[in-house]
Every structure is written in structure tokens, then in C-alpha cells.
Design a protein around this nucleic acid. Structure first.
Length: 591
RNA sequence: GCUCCCGUAGUUCAAUGGAUAGAAUGCGAGCUUGCGGAGCUUGUGAUCUAGGUUCGAUUCCUAGCGGGAGCACCA
């Protein structure tokens, strides 16, 4: 019995509509004698007057049949009309039309989207979830800060894009493993250890570990310019620590411990929690095996004293896995990590959320992984994102000290939000103001990033990132808080009966239409690994809610209509909340 | 030199090959006797250039111009 009820629920979700329409058209095309139909799309029309769904099937079929698109469109429509009439009450379509140049537009029966509201209110936090990924393991590699270095605005992108993709997949029912592949093994440790032994300022280190370590690194590089021998010393220190020299390992462990404390503090502020922290050091015991395996299989060769995997057949530079001095490097570690994730974790998919700049490295890595037999094409994927640029249009660079620390950015955001809360809502308790300031400030920063297509570079601009008006997280949070305020005032008893048929004016239907497609949006965002699709959707939903809010009274309406509208705005609140949660943005009862 | 990415209103960003290229911000004009004005309505304003494919191109292809990134012993 329960199963039946659930199935009915799923049937009224958005993607079911789309699929139903798609199947219907396919069937009709077959009847028209087109069996080899190239793919056509069923999508949302740009304007409400074109209905709920639109398809370009007639335009494509016209090409094959060499007839006018409008003519084919009419044929398809009359055929569909016949099908629909035979479906009787069960059909979801109310109106079908052809519009020039040949689009076929479908308008659903209002009941279809009206009924969905009850579904939302019932599912609450679960609305939008699915079982699409059941049984599949996805590994997401994101954030990846470097030990003893500060996290700057560049790290933010990988961290929050990765977390958003993680949450989307989780909602779709995948078994998912988030990994923080921290940089805890590189050769820069030699420099740091040498500098630590020789020019450390212990007092400064105690006050602010990361800051002092950063100073040390810059200091070392400056001194090494004067005295080249320093680099040799550093190499020796690296070697000692990588070979397990007690003193250096102890220092290294101390670096790792202190850095992780710092990172965890920042992760806590931005609400990120990564399942596994498995840095480069974790894979060290496996590296020798990987190198000899590659040599035995004849995939790797010795070249100029190093060990490389030649990839010139694939038009790629060689992939180095052992340096002339015998040391391994990040490519070796990454290759071992691929093996580990596939063999140990049975990953069906590995997603690397790493900046654009490393596209070349990942091409090499994936090809090397395939040659080694660890992965088949397509299992590993580099989810790239653009750089954070300075006002000059150039990349932020540590050397020039132009970098903006993540912590400073977060602090500034919270501070600005706090000021506004103070203005808007002075009567709230300090504790609540703090909470609001955090949610608004952090939300604004995350949204500013996640609402943009991840592939394009973003320009760093304090005012832009921290604008709380317009298309921003606070705008969405504000719509949510308004709804909550209305609901508080309504004192609606929990058991009121929802008659969603009463929601029939244009503004109400527009909101309902938005609500019904949430699952399709999630699906697409997941497929394309594009969180901005979700951001864009919530923004549009909030827009349609605001238009409704300005024109349609809720509390002032007559009894049953009032209940229906309260139900509607509750639904909007649920979807805004669920959507923002996927972006890692909190919602607030008041702000 | 080779490879990859990107050129959209003044600015910052959208746009699965589709209908009138959509927002935000800026500047201009409005909206309070109702639920939160961090809001709403409205005006202004853009696809780098030249070809090609297509019924249809911001999107795909070619060339050019402009910006950025990468190109074995860093990650």
C-alpha cells in the first residue's frame, strides 16, 4: 500500500511530465513514419504564454520529411490530441498548440501543478531528493589546501563548488565520499623546515602559526635569491624528512597539526565538512609499487635519469612519476590515489574540483590511469573552474603579496552584515544578530561564487561580493524570512485542509509552475556539475514569489483561499530552504 | 613556438542550436491607509571582427584581433 502511494507521488514530479511528453511525441512520430528520429528536446518555453513545456520536434522532423515545420507541427498536434483524448482524466495536458516557426507548446492541466503542492508540504526537507544514484559510488576531491600556507580566496572556489556538488549528489542518492587531498608532502617542506630551524620567530609563531609560516616562506625565498646554497640545504632537509629522519618528521607533523587546526576553523565558519582528509603523505607507501608496476607493464620508461610515462601518442607531454634525484612528485601521488579510489573504494566516478590551470595535468593523469588499467575513459573527471582575478585582470599571486586571505574576506562579510542587521533590526538579541550576520555574510560570499558559471574567471571585488541587494543570497534569505513572518502571524493550525485548486490566478500558477520543476533542476545541475543552475532557479522562484507577494494578499484573504495561499508560501519556503542548503547557504527565521 | 580557456549593456554576470539575448548594479521615473522597502513596477543600454554550416548561431566550424592559463624534475 505504501509503495503505491509513493509511486503516485513521484508521478506528479516535474521530470515525469517531461518524460511523458517526450514519450508521447516519440510515439506520434513513429505513427507518422519517422522511426529514425534524431534527438529533439522537451524544455521550458521562455514565456508563460507559450505554456509549460515546449518541443522542437516538429522543426527537426520537418527537415527529415522536407516539409514546412508548421505543417508537420499541426499533424503532430492533431495526432497528440487524439492520444490525449483517449487518456481521458488521467492525461496531464490541457492544451497543445503550434507556434511559428514550428514549436509545439504544451499547457498542463492546472491540477497537475496544484496537486504537487501537497507533495511538497508532505516531503518537506526531502522534496527534491531522488534515488537516481542508488548503489553508485562517487568520490569528490575538493578544497586541497597546502599545509603551512594560508587559505586565500582561490581556495574558496574549490571548497564551496565541491561541497555543493557533494550535496547535490547526496540528495540524488549516490554513495558519496568527499576527500580533502591536502598538500602535505611537497618539496617546499624542505624550505620550510630549513627556515624553521634557522630563522624562526617563535613568539610570532605562537601568536599566528600560519602567518608566521607564510612570512618564513617568503623570507626564505628572498634569502635564497642572495645565497643559492640555501636551496641545496632545503633539498637536503626535504630528503631527510621524506626518508623518515626523526627530527624533520617531528617538525613536519607539527606543521600539519597546526595547519589543520587553522583549516578546520575556516571550514567551520563556512560550514564545510569533508569526509576524509587523505593528503599526499597518505599515498607515500604505495608510490614505489606504482612506479615499478608502471615500469614492468612497459608503460613507463627511464628518460634523462627520471621515470616518465610517455604520452606523445596522445598529443600530451610526458607524465613524470620519478625525478632524477629519485624523489616522487605530485603526479605519482595522484596516480596512486586514482588506484586507491578505484580499488579500495570501488569508485564509479571520481570528480576532481580543481582550477582550470591544471587541466593539462589532469589530462595526463587520466590518460596515465587508463594505460595502467586503473580507470576506463570517463570515470575520472576534472570539474574545472575559472580563476579569481584581481581588479587588474591578473591572477592573484602570493609572491607579490596581493593575495586576499579567506579569513579576512569572511570577517569583512560578517562585519558588513552585522552592521546592516543593527540598522534593520536593532531589537534582536546580540546572539541572534551574530547568527544572522554570519548566515548573511557567508551566504553572500558563497552565492556570489556559486551563482556564476564555474568555468568563467571571476573578478574579485569587495563591494560586489558583499552586496546584499539584488541577485544575492540575502535577497533569497529575505524572501524566506518574509514567508516565515507571515506564517508566524497566521497562527495556522497544523491540520488545516489544503485546497490547492483555489490557487488559480496567474501569480499563483507562476509560483506553482516553478515549484514543480525543482527535481529537474537538481538533476541537470548534478549532470552538468553546475551549481549555478540551482542558484538561478532559486532566484527565479524568489522573483515569482515576490511578484505574488506584492499583488496577492495572504492573511487578508477569505478562509479557504487564505489556507491555500499559506500552503503555497510554505511550499516556497521549503524549496528555497532545500535549494539554498544545496549551495551551503543557511536560511533564517528572521533577519 | 605548441596546446587549452575566455571575449555579451558603463560595470559584474546569465542564456540545454530556438521564440523579443535575461538579470544585477549604475543612471532616470514611480510604488506606504495589507502580510518585513535587504522589496516591487518601469525606462535606459550589449553578443570582438570577417566568413561558413543551419529553417534558426552568443552557442557549432574556419580565419583574424584582444585577454588569460599551461607546456617533465613545484603543487
Amino acid at each position: 500500500m505504501r509503495m503505491v502511494a509513493k509511486e503516485v507521488l513521484f508521478k506528479i514530479l516535474g521530470y515525469m511530465h517531461k518524460k511523458q511528453i517526450h514519450d508521447l511525441i516519440e510515439k506520434v512520430l513513429k505513427d507518422l513514419g519517422i522511426s529514425q528520429m534524431p534527438s529533439f528536446s522537451v524544455s521550458y518555453p521562455p514565456e508563460a504564454k507559450f505554456g509549460d513545456y515546449t518541443t522542437n520536434a516538429a522543426l527537426i522532423a520537418a527537415k527529415i520529411l522536407k516539409k514546412a515545420p508548421m505543417e508537420i507541427g499541426e499533424k503532430i498536434v492533431s495526432s497528440i490530441k487524439y492520444q490525449v483524448s483517449s487518456m481521458g482524466k488521467k492525461g496531464i495536458i490541457r492544451k497543445i498548440e503550434v507556434a511559428p516557426p514550428g514549436f509545439i507548446n504544451f499547457t498542463l492541466k492546472p491540477e497537475v501543478i496544484q496537486k504537487n503542492l501537497a507533495n511538497i508540504l508532505k516531503q518537506k526537507d526531502k522534496y527534491g531528493s531522488s534515488k537516481a544514484g542508488k548503489g553508485k559510488v562517487v568520490v569528490i576531491d575538493y578544497s586541497q589546501p597546502n599545509i603551512a600556507k594560508r587559505m586565500h580566496v582561490g581556495h574558496l572556489r574549490s571548497t564551496i563548488i565541491g561541497q555543493a556538488i557533494y550535496d547535490i549528489y547526496k540528495l540524488e542518492g549516490y554513495k558519496i565520499k568527499g576527500v580533502n587531498h591536502i598538500g602535505d608532502w611537497g618539496t617546499h617542506f624542505g624550505k620550510l623546515i630549513y627556515a624553521y630551524k634557522n630563522f624562526i620567530d617563535k613568539k610570532a609563531l605562537k601568536e599566528n602559526f600560519i602567518q608566521e609560516m607564510n612570512r618564513l616562506y617568503v623570507d626564505f625565498n628572498a634569502r635564497a635569491k642572495e645565497d643559492e646554497k640555501l636551496n641545496d640545504y632545503a633539498r637536503e632537509e626535504t630528503k631527510k624528512f621524506q626518508e623518515g629522519g626523526k627530527e624533520n618528521v617531528k617538525i613536519w607533523k607539527y606543521f600539519v597539526r597546526e595547519s589543520m587546526k587553522e583549516f578546520d576553523r575556516i571550514y567551520k565558519i563556512i560550514g564545510v565538512k569533508i569526509d576524509y582528509t587523505l593528503g599526499e603523505s597518505f599515498y607515500q607507501p604505495m608510490l614505489k609499487g606504482v612506479i615499478s608496476e608502471a615500469l614492468e607493464k612497459g608503460i613507463a620508461i627511464h628518460s634523462q635519469g627520471a621515470v616518465i610515462i610517455p604520452l606523445d601518442k596522445y598529443n600530451l607531454p610526458p607524465f613524470m612519476i620519478r625525478k632524477t634525484d629519485g624523489a616522487t612528485l605530485y603526479g605519482t601521488t595522484d596516480l596512486a590515489a586514482v588506484k586507491y579510489r578505484v580499488n579500495k573504494w570501488k569508485a564509479d566516478k571520481i570528480i576532481y574540483v580543481v582550477a582550470n590551470e591544471q587541466a593539462g595535468h589532469f589530462q595526463q593523469l587520466f590518460k596515465a590511469g587508463e594505460l595502467m588499467g586503473y580507470i576506463k575513459g570517463g570515470i575520472a573527471e576534472h570539474v574545472k573552474f575559472g580563476m579569481v582575478l584581481g581588479a587588474d585582470g591578473k591572477k592573484f599571486s602570493t609572491r607579490e603579496g596581493k593575495v586576499i586571505l579567506l579569513e579576512d574576506l569572511l570577517g569583512e562579510a560578517i562585519g558588513r552584515a552585522r552592521k546592516i542587521v543593527e540598522e534593520k533590526n536593532p531589537k534582536l538579541s546580540n546572539r541572534e544578530k551574530e547568527k544572522i550576520a554570519k548566515a548573511v555574510g557567508i551566504g553572500a560570499i558563497k552565492y556570489n561564487d556559486l551563482s556564476q558559471n564555474r568555468l568563467t574567471d571571476i573578478t574579485f571585488n569587495w563591494d560586489r561580493m558583499l552586496d546584499f541587494r539584488g541577485n544575492s543570497a540575502p535577497y533569497l534569505q529575505y524572501a524566506y524570512a518574509r514567508i516565515k513572518s507571515i506564517l508566524r502571524k497566521s497562527k495556522a493550525s497544523k491540520g488545516f485542509k489544503l485546497d490547492s485548486k483555489l490557487l488559480k490566478n496567474e501569480k499563483e500558477l507562476a509560483v506553482l509552475r516553478q515549484l514543480a520543476i525543482f527535481d529537474e533542476i537538481i538533476e541537470r545541475a548534478g549532470q552538468e556539475r553546475m551549481p549555478n543552475i540551482i542558484a538561478d532557479y532559486i532566484y527565479k522562484l524568489a522573483n515569482s514569489f515576490n511578484a505574488f507577494y506584492e499583488n496577492v494578499p495572504v492573511l487578508g484573504a477569505e478562509k479557504d483561499v487564505r489556507f491555500a495561499r499559506l500552503g503555497l508560501i510554505s511550499g516556497v519556503a521549503i524549496v528555497i530552504k532545500n535549494g539554498l542548503k544545496l549551495l551551503g547557504i543557511e536560511t533564517l527565521e528572521r533577519m
